[in-house]
Nucleic acid binder design. Structure first.
Lengths: 273, 273
DNA sequence: TCTTGACTTTGCCCTTAGGGGAAAGTGCAT
DNA sequence: ATGCACTTTCCCCTAAGGGCAAAGTCAAGA
């Protein structure tokens, strides 16, 4: 019979942990003195404690271990749990490697440019939405305002409620200054619109890499550069079209320096080599 | 100005999280209505929130992020933090891979033998200790009792206090039935002993793989087998000598079926290929 | 037999990054 | 004025114990 401290030294499991295992019913002492409350363990309990520690090292929670030990399950069931655990660990390793890649990308970026970028790139989902849009190959970016003008005019006339910020989608394979293929969009409540140039479509949810640019549109290219570099360094592939969301765009008495624009590139993880 | 729900939709950060960031001073709303308590955010706060999310994805805690953002530190400092993070992630990946190896070893063991082993192997440290020992190459294992007898007799005569269980160390490179080189040991309070055959030595702390055998000594070989297989499958190297700890050994009126023995092999991680 | 020091007990608060839910108050559209 | 969706604060919960405090217990020496 060992007192808790001796059993702790023997097993190298802290007495706090032993008391905790007692509380949750994972490992009850062989004997508890009914007067003093002292816990007494025997050497016969070491195998069970050893098994607990071993399963803990495999990554099981104490809750799972309690089940594993007490509902003496079949070999096939144990095998199943181990396989699940294996898959889970593999997923975790992949996550950590992704994280590592991000840290390394950030370090590389500092070393190359010797400055911390003003752009923080983040991945997330965009929610699916229904949009009204008008698409055209225009000669020049200054026509974008014109497209939105036409779009909003129709929405207003047909009493359609816009939700969210206006954005454009760029359908060109690569960035081009001349004749870009532009789609001016705005999310709307699901409804129909009768107009020869306006399309209603549903955009599915999609994973994106995104960054936010503050300032005049002429300086947007820096944000594009940072975003593209990040995407390349983090082993993603770009899926067109990308979006440019005008969170805070032109308005009367508003300086272009305070414009806020979000650039979103749909991405997918590049297949492993 | 966005209410918390709109800002949450915009950023895809839950409003619960936004309130939490407000509480810990990480991201205060641009305006809080002093009457209703409503939080109002502006689009200008998105870059900061984006940075928070980006740093979170790199694995920093909110505490660290608060410092990173508010104590605007030098490029070199940021670089240092990233390097530390990198090392930490690499360590974590190594840990996970170790864990994966263990799960796979367990699965292999089930597949090979189609049964779950009675032996759970665990790694841990043994604490450093001072031991008194008597070492001899004996003809046969039955002499082990004899060695301990001599050892205890001297300890008793010289009033040396023994601590812990008796154990032997096997110095032979491989297991041998004939003429094994055996050292019978017992931990003692640091002290000196005058005797021609008894040595006092200090054993350093060392990492071990260990398992527990219950039953007669003639069945110990199964435990050895399980332990050796585990060590091989988990990519460890064995460091001699190994120990056999007699947690519950021969005593009057005690059946050999109830003997409890712990087998410990000092190990080191095999160098990566 | 008494004392002392080492050990043990229970109980409470703490850790991360919020999630869930309740009760009460607000904002906005009809 | 009324609904209804939204927001507020408040409280409890997570996993696996660690730290600490007050009080009780054990075992050995004097």
């Amino acid at each position: 019979m060992f007192k808790i401290g001796d059993f702790s030294k023997l097993s190298q499991v802290s007495s706090k942990a032993l008391r905790y295992y007692d509380n949750i019913g994972l490992l009850k002492p062989a004997h508890v003195d009914s007067f003093s409350g002292y816990r007494y363990y025997t050497v016969d309990q070491l195998p069970r404690l050893n098994r607990i520690v071993a399963l803990k090292e495999l990554g099981f929670s104490l809750d799972q271990i309690t089940q594993l030990l007490d509902e003496n399950l079949s070999l096939a069931q144990l095998q199943g749990m181990l396989r699940m655990k294996q898959a889970e660990i593999e997923r975790q390793i992949a996550d950590e490697q992704q994280r590592l890649l991000r840290v390394q990308a950030r370090l590389q970026q500092i070393e190359c440019e010797n400055t911390s970028s003003a752009y923080d790139v983040v991945t997330r989902q965009v929610v699916p939405m229904t949009i009204a849009s008008i698409r055209d190959r225009v000669s020049d970016y200054s026509h974008v305002g014109h497209l939105f003008h036409r779009l909003f005019a129709v929405l207003g006339k047909q009493q359609v409620q816009a939700t969210g910020s206006p954005f454009v989608r760029y359908h060109d394979g690569e960035h081009r200054e001349d004749d870009p293929d532009i789609e001016a969009c705005i999310a709307i409540e699901a409804s129909e619109i009768e107009h020869e140039h306006i399309t209603v479509s549903k955009l599915p949810a999609v994973q994106i890499a995104t960054t936010i640019h503050t300032g005049h549109y002429t300086t947007l290219s820096a944000a594009y550069g940072a975003l593209m570099t990040w995407i390349a360094r983090n082993d993603y592939d770009i899926i067109l079209p990308n979006r440019e969301v005008y969170l805070r765009g032109p308005a009367p008495n508003r300086s272009p320096e305070t414009y806020v624009t979000e650039i979103q590139f749909p991405i997918s993880k590049r297949a492993n080599t």
